[in-house]
């Protein structure tokens, strides 16, 4: 058995406000293993972003615990990469300065890190844009910069909250493919929230289906796709014969009524 990176034990979360209380998550129990990409799908407003914030230690759950590499998440020990729907690049910083933002805040920035940042940017096809400003880059390139900003911190694992949904369809396919390949190559562990079923199947090793609010785990599906050797990229996986089967299964489970 592989090592567990994240243990989510009986998480529940209720928000309180003057208008009343919102039970966002009833009970979620989930282990995430090293090197796997786990997808989370569920109706909008069911508590997916809330779950990610809890895992990152940004908000405290009403009950339950989260362990990362056996330790409770806290402000001091967390080393988690987070990507959002918007790339959240700072417009007044050039690409290099954006990439090193996390290191700068943690007071770790050194000339070696600048070299490392430049190498990463070169490797991911952004070598010509090191000193450009975010506004000069396309949406897909910006999201790639956001990924590098995350990876340079060498996080134990990554939380991806609908990272591609702000992009147009074609860019989205290309960037999802690219980022999927990078995550696998670097052996990263990740939790990916998406509302795109096909995207989830093409990128993930397992998919967790959440119920509508208050969220519980409805089902966990292991994705096993047969794809030709060397073509097992997210785009290649879309051509696997089992793809349709998984798509229909998840679609039925999500039980979407319009």
């Amino acid at each position: 058995m592989k090592n567990v990176v994240v243990e989510i034990n009986n998480i529940a979360m209720t928000y309180h406000s003057l208008e009343g209380e919102t039970e966002a998550i009833r009970n979620i129990d989930l282990d995430i293993y090293e090197g796997e990409i786990v997808g989370i799908v569920g109706p909008s407003g069911c508590g997916k972003s809330t779950l990610l914030s809890i895992i990152a230690g940004l908000i405290k759950p009403t009950s339950g615990t989260v362990l990362i590499k056996g330790q409770k998440v806290s402000k001091s020990n967390r080393n988690i990469g987070y990507m959002f729907q918007k790339d959240q690049l700072l417009e007044w910083r050039n690409i290099l300065q954006n990439v090193v933002l996390g290191l700068e805040i943690q007071g770790k920035l050194s000339s070696q890190h600048y070299e490392k940042a430049k190498n990463l940017l070169n490797n991911y096809g952004l070598g010509d844009f090191i000193y450009s400003y975010p506004s000069q880059l396309s949406g897909g390139m910006r999201q790639r910069v956001a990924l590098i900003r995350t990876l340079i911190l060498e996080p134990d694992f990554l939380l991806l909250d609908e990272p591609f949904s702000a992009l147009d369809y074609q860019t989205r396919l290309a960037i999802a493919d690219e980022i999927g390949v990078i995550l696998k190559r670097e052996g990263k562990t990740a939790l990916l929230v998406t509302h795109d079923i096909a995207e989830a199947i093409s990128l993930c090793d397992r998919i967790v289906i959440l119920s509508k609010r208050p969220a519980i785990v409805k089902e966990i599906i292991d994705i096993e796709l047969t794809c030709p050797e060397g073509r097992c990229t997210p785009l290649g996986r879309r051509e696997a014969p089992e793809f349709r089967f998984y798509f229909n299964k998840i679609w039925k489970e999500l039980d979407i009524h319009v």
């Binding site: 940004l58 967390r78 988690i80 990469g81 987070y82 959002f84 918007k86 959240q88 805040i105 943690q106």
Partner: peptide, 17 residues
């Protein structure tokens, strides 16, 4: 943007930062 502040928090930023 709230997510931007969230991002900074995952970096461990202080309020002053």
């Amino acid at each position: 943007d709230e997510d931007l502040i969230k991002l900074l928090n995952t970096f461990g930023a202080t309020k002053f930062q």
